[in-house]
């Protein structure tokens, strides 16, 4: 944690809302990205990120300064997103449907900026197939470079549970990408009408 952050936290604890706003300004992108990768939709990610900051604001007096502030904040966001997914019982909505619904106009929404390539669409589809905790572990590992111990702290899991979740998630992603590749190959064959293609 930087000295400036420590000062902002101290000031926020003394009732200075502007100091907390500085923390929001600093961490808006990582928190939003986590919510977006977890929930897969920009408006929900915005709401979840706002709610995460509000929860952090309320719980600030319980924040242990020995912990990294970003880990603590991302942990709040991850837990909130996991709860949201549990509540709405997300059942892998195909991403093409989400894209059709979301991209009804030409406004440059965040997901349009991010998912502007085939790879990003593929990534969304793959992430959607994972359960919420596996997804959270994967996001924290790949986007934030968290170690197993940091992920376990953020998600309130044991280190061995994190290892097995990451293992399962990577295995599932590998299988899905393999299946997707085979599907696209089969589609191409069908298109060109040649089994030998």
């Amino acid at each position: 944690m930087s000295d400036l952050e420590a000062v902002w936290i101290e000031q926020a604890l003394n009732g200075d809302d502007d100091a907390f706003t500085q923390l929001v300004e600093t961490y808006q992108k990582p928190v939003y990205n986590l919510c977006y990768r977890m929930l897969g939709e920009s408006q929900e990610a915005e709401d979840a990120a706002q709610e995460s900051f509000w929860r952090a604001y309320q719980a600030l007096n319980r924040y242990d300064t020995k912990r990294k502030f970003s880990t603590w904040l991302l942990s709040i966001a991850a837990h909130y997103c996991i709860d949201q997914q549990r509540k709405r019982h997300i059942i892998n909505v195909p991403m093409d449907i989400i894209f059709e619904e979301t991209y009804s106009d030409n406004a440059p929404t965040p997901e349009r900026v991010v998912a502007n390539s085939e790879e990003d669409q593929m990534l969304h589809k793959l992430m959607n197939s994972l359960n919420s905790q596996d997804r959270a572990a994967l996001v924290l590992r790949y986007w934030y470079g968290f170690s197993d111990a940091e992920i376990s702290e953020a998600l309130s899991l044991t280190v061995s549970a994190v290892k097995s979740r990451l293992y399962r998630a990577r295995q599932s992603l590998a299988e899905d990408i393999q299946a997707a590749r085979q599907e696209s190959l089969a589609a191409e064959r069908e298109q060109y009408g040649s089994p030998a293609y």
Binding site: V24, P30, A49, P110, L123, W143
Partner: peptide
């Protein structure tokens, strides 16, 4: 490769 290349999504302007 997909995960490494993925960008960090940013919220719409005016989040704070």
């Amino acid at each position: 490769d997909l995960l490494m290349k993925a960008e960090i999504a940013a919220p719409n302007a005016g989040f704070t």
